[in-house]
Amino acid sequence: MAEQLVVDRLTKTFGGIVALNGVELAFSAGELIGLIGPNGSGKTTLLNIVSGYYTADRGQITYENQPIAGTSPHKLARIGIGRSFQVTKVFRRLTVMENMLVSGLSDWSETRSQASERATAILEDLKLTRLRDERASNLSGGQLKLLEFARIMMLQPKLLLLDEPFGGVHPELKRFMYDCIRKWNAAGITIILISHDMGSIFELCRRVVTLSYGDIICDGTPEETRADKGVLEAYLGEHHASA
């Protein structure tokens, strides 16, 4: 498979803290990767650099054979890098449909009716049709998560970076979100998923990358990750891991 995203010797420090320490990773098109690690291991920093919110101190990022370091987040969104944040990011004073169309129409590449048609189909897929004229501020936490999914799909992403999408979500809704993620991945979208919910990671992902203090300590299948002593130590501490 062709490498869609290549992260080459990426380093990022905040003051004296090394958030990423020469990280090297390559992701192929169509992969579904779990990115795990204890708090402060550098997962979100990596996503922030790939999506253009941070600039790396050193290293390169290549997306579809093009260097993208220093590219602004909105341009990356337009070339197919979709992203969610730990805290749901939607415009709460716009309606559900307006949220969709702000995404779809801001580059003027399609007409309003084309964008509306696409938005309607996505909302239907995500069971949000009846809420299309509702202000986002009136939506529940779960509905906001789905709206965030919907507005990401409006940008027709080829690479999806999901940061803790299952936080505070009802188990039934979580199942529905799993189905969406699997469906999009089956359609060819590469997905990098950050979650502290190990059950979700191991159920969804075929490859799991573990970060600890800015270093990759494991890159393998879920089974390999579960069995890795370094991963156990990173999560539980050396003493508990050897017990």
Partner: peptide, 13 residues
């Protein structure tokens, strides 16, 4: 409403 969100929506801030 939210500059960061606008950027991930593909809007040029």
């Amino acid at each position: 409403q939210d500059r960061q969100a606008a950027e991930i929506y593909g809007i040029s801030v």
